[in-house]
């Protein structure tokens, strides 16, 4: 018998299954308990009424109510342009910075700052800086571009500004991190073969950068999709920036309607997965090979 059990163990070990895999258990158990279980629990909660009667009433109520349903459009109206803008500006800058550039370390260090500060602090700063008597309006009035202060906070512009300030550095760092791994020899080879600068960018560098760009877009979108503190602080949380996360929060913690809050959370998850999934679908059709020039 011991011989037989040993051979089973050997056979499993051949397939990579041995005692080392026990090391995965704590992490997997933690995420099972704190991520998968709450999610399934929320899913179950979302298909019943507050009294516990099963049914999809929460979803029907959400989509039947104009005020609630419009949060989806408001969220996308912020998240898609913010993600596209953040990643779009990052591409040419990352292209320029990808090689050994002077002060690169300083630039990247500065870029980390807004991400470290977080949305709450940026929103607080924006209330002052972009406010009617803030420096930004003072400057515009001093140089005579405008006569009266612009309304830049407590509306769509304020939230968009906060999404760019916190999101753009993250996108640039992600795109740059990926672009820096592209072997410059590939571009030199294209140049040797007679490709001009724009052709090199279009046909060599951009395709190689695309996997990094798609990842950056996905993360930028997810971050912008969940905009909550800035939508409340520098937005208009009962009007044009009443995003879906505010609707979910209000259901859970103002009306204590947990089934409804869970339903909204599930809708949020489905929307994020839909966008993330379609981006990854496009990505899977892109070139995903080596970004190095070496053979093998």
């Amino acid at each position: 018998m011991p011989e037989r059990s040993r051979s089973l163990r050997d056979r499993l070990a051949e397939r990579g299954i041995d005692r080392v895999l026990w090391l995965l258990l704590p992490a997997a158990a933690l995420l099972g308990m704190l991520f998968v279980y709450p999610f399934l629990y929320g899913l179950g909660l979302s298909v019943q009424s507050q009294e516990g009667t099963p049914g999809i009433g929460n979803y029907l109520r959400f989509f039947g109510d104009d005020f609630q349903r419009s949060t989806i459009a408001k969220t996308f109206a912020l998240a898609i342009p913010a993600a596209a803008l953040n990643v779009g500006i990052s591409i040419p800058i990352a292209y320029k910075l990808r090689g050994p550039v002077r002060h690169k370390r300083v630039i990247t260090t500065l870029l980390v700052l807004p991400a470290t500060l977080g949305t709450v602090l940026v929103a607080e700063g924006l209330i002052r800086y972009f406010g009617p008597i803030g420096w930004f309006n003072q400057l515009l009035m001093a140089i005579g571009i405008i006569d009266a202060p612009l309304q830049l906070t407590h509306n769509y512009i304020g939230v968009m500004a906060s999404l760019i300030i916190t999101g753009f550095p993250l996108s640039l760092l992600l795109v740059l991190g990926h672009a820096s791994g592209i072997d410059p020899d590939l571009e030199r080879a294209a140049a040797t073969l007679g490709a001009g600068p724009s052709e090199r960018f279009r046909r060599v560098i951009l395709p190689l950068m695309l996997p990094g760009i798609t990842i950056a877009f996905v993360l930028a979108f997810v971050a912008a999709f969940a905009v909550f503190p800035s939508a409340v602080m520098v937005g208009n949380p009962s009007g044009e920036t009443r995003v879906i996360s505010i609707a979910a929060y209000q259901a859970a913690f103002e009306r204590f309607d947990y089934p409804m809050a869970s339903a909204i959370a599930m809708i949020m998850a489905a929307l994020q997965f839909a966008v993330v999934g379609s981006v990854f679908l496009v990505r899977s059709r892109l070139y995903r090979g080596s970004t190095s020039g070496a053979k093998g």
Binding site: R15, L34, F35, V36, P38, V222, A269
Partner: peptide
Amino acid sequence: FPGKRLVMLLFLLPMLLAPITYGIPLATA
């Protein structure tokens, strides 16, 4: 090992969702 992709997916999912999405069911639980 077999199933490694599934384990990786479990570890990646929380990073591909905005915290407030799983935060609300998590807080409820």
